[in-house]
């Protein structure tokens, strides 16, 4: 569990990026911060591994204030995946994946063996292990980035718009891959995006932010969709128009679901057993 208590961040130039931010990020769930650029979502994310130090307030990981922890050690136990993968261009894929274990002094042979397993985990062929990042496609690089983030088997995985720079088809593939991984690995994932569809697809808890890290609304995707807190949220999630404002029309005895433009979005069928993904456990 990660807990923010009245956290503020003021940059040296005077910008108040995050103002009095409080939030509990539950363990083994995916929490997504979503908002327009400049809302402070990346700043909040980077305060967790102390890439950015908060100005006031406290941030605790499992009840331990991170201010007292060594930055470098803290970062090595938190996975981090960023946009454009951030892979080290001068190291082979296998060494990139093994970065953190090697930093931690794990013997090379052992770290490499584990790195190969991780390539399997993220759906990459082992034959790519000896290539350099520049020899991979954008989607493959992003997968290597995820494998690297998982290499030290961290409890927490921070993801800063990891799929922002890949084309839509690859993005959809990577999102499905992340959902599968999360089912298998059960990490505490903190994910930043400006794409509300991505937020609803991946998030157990979605946090909608406005400038200054102000939480406009937080909850499960269902909670937010069924009761947008205000017009800003309704507008931001597109609840009033397009493919989210659906209505039912009876055609030839079947119930057809139409969007606000009157285009068919699907048909109504009996719900799957087991309930929705964010039903209370």
């Amino acid at each position: 569990m990660i807990e923010f208590r009245q956290v503020s961040k003021q940059f040296p130039d005077g910008t108040l990026a995050v103002d009095d931010f409080s939030l509990v990020i539950p363990s083994r769930k995916t929490t997504v911060f979503v908002g327009s650029s400049g809302c402070g979502k990346t700043t909040i994310l980077r305060m967790i591994n102390r890439m950015i130090d908060r100005t006031s307030g406290s941030i605790e990981i499992d009840g331990e204030d991170i201010v007292g922890l060594d930055k470098v050690k803290l970062r090595r136990r938190i996975g981090y995946v960023m946009q454009n993968s951030g892979l080290l261009p001068h190291r082979k894929v296998i060494d990139n994946v093994a970065t953190v274990p090697l930093l931690n002094g794990v013997p090379k042979k052992q770290a490499h063996a584990r790195a190969l397993e991780l390539l399997d985990t993220v759906g990459l062929d082992r034959s790519l292990a000896n290539r350099y990042p520049s020899q991979l496609s954008g989607g493959q690089q992003q997968r290597v980035g995820v494998a690297r983030g998982l290499a030290a088997d961290p409890n927490i995985l921070l993801m800063d718009e990891p799929f922002g720079a890949v084309d839509p088809l690859v993005r959809a593939e990577l999102q499905q891959e992340l959902i599968r991984l999360q089912r298998e690995l059960d990490k505490t994932v903190v994910f930043v995006t400006h794409d509300i569809d991505e937020a609803f697809l991946l998030g157990d808890q979605v946090v909608i932010l406005q400038k200054g890290g102000v939480i406009v609304q937080k909850g499960s995707p269902t909670e937010i969709l069924s009761a947008p807190a205000n017009d800003f949220v309704a507008d931001f999630i597109g609840a009033t128009k397009g493919k989210r404002a659906l209505h039912i029309d009876r055609r030839d005895g079947r119930e057809v679901v139409l969007d606000s433009e009157g285009r068919a979005a699907g048909v109504l069928v009996d719900g799957p057993t087991g309930g929705s993904k964010d039903a209370p456990a």
Partner: peptide, 27 residues
């Protein structure tokens, strides 16, 4: 700066980062 930041986020200390990331990439 993307690569430098990512190296920092991985847990490179400033010293290690200089020798193992910055200097080789400046090569």
């Amino acid at each position: 700066s993307d690569i430098s930041q990512s190296a920092t986020a991985m847990g490179f200390s400033p010293w290690t980062r200089f020798w193992k990331v910055d200097l080789p990439l400046a090569g």
